[in-house]
Amino acid sequence: MNGRITTGMLQRNILADLQRSTSQLSRTQAKLSSGKEITRPSDDPAGTAKALSLRESLRGTQQHAKNVDDAITWTDATESALSSMTDIVQRARTLVVNGASDGTDQTSRDAIAKEIDQLAESLKEQANMRYAGRQLFSGTATTTAPYDAGSDAYAGNTGQMAREIGPGVSVNVNTTADTILGSGQAAGDDKLLDTLRDISDHLRAGDGASLRGTDLDRIDKGVESLLTARATNGALTNRLESASSRLAAVEEMTVKSLSDTEDADLAKTMIDLTTQTSAYQAALKAGANIVQSSLMDFLR
């Protein structure tokens, strides 16, 4: 292209070529030492945008996994409280059967009535169980105990506690005590507390007919409502556990495709580095030879 090649031109061309090789080498070295294909957005703008949205969905998945873990411990705590309640109600049922028989005298019935009262208090204690400082059975009024000592009235609310376990997927994790235990005799809602207080009254009054009749049915209904609550809660736990493993799989997939997008292919980069190093050395050697020699070396 150029008619006449001058010494300065040669030198400048060699310098420019060396510069190009060095900058390629430095980029490859940066890739190797950081392990990343993309170290700054300009390396691959489209890849950067993809990596950003992948990282965003990774964060989302991780947060959902945390929500699921929280929800699972919540349902586990609920289950353990409900299971204790079932034991208590079963014990109450045995006592009612004992007390209902006509062979039981009034002293024994009074004693049984006392125990029933204690069992009702235990039910309230179980309902007042807290998990991580929050009331399990109070709805969304998590700082208010569902039952105050000396009162059977439910003090919580019916709020649903939602946990987001996937994009746009929420589950309600809480069980409220009013659906199982109710608000006692004053409300007359036929729930467990109402039933137990009535049974205690019937025992003290020696009303064997009511005990044998409606009271047993009512306590059975109470057991049933407990079991229903436990079944719902258990199904929720199952669902949460499958969500947890699904989220783990999604997270792994996202991490993999993030790594595909922004991590350097080590073998390829290594080979690139070797190729570029030898090209650089060849350029250096050729440059050294050309720059040194001139016609002057061949004339005496």
Binding site: M1, N2, R4, T6, T7, G8, R12, N13, L295, M296
Partner: peptide
């Protein structure tokens, strides 16, 4: 720049010759 030096630059070989 190459164009320019090909006109006004110094080639050692040429000068030696």
């Amino acid at each position: 720049d190459d164009r320019r030096t090909s006109v006004n630059g110094v080639s050692l070989d040429e000068e030696m010759t």
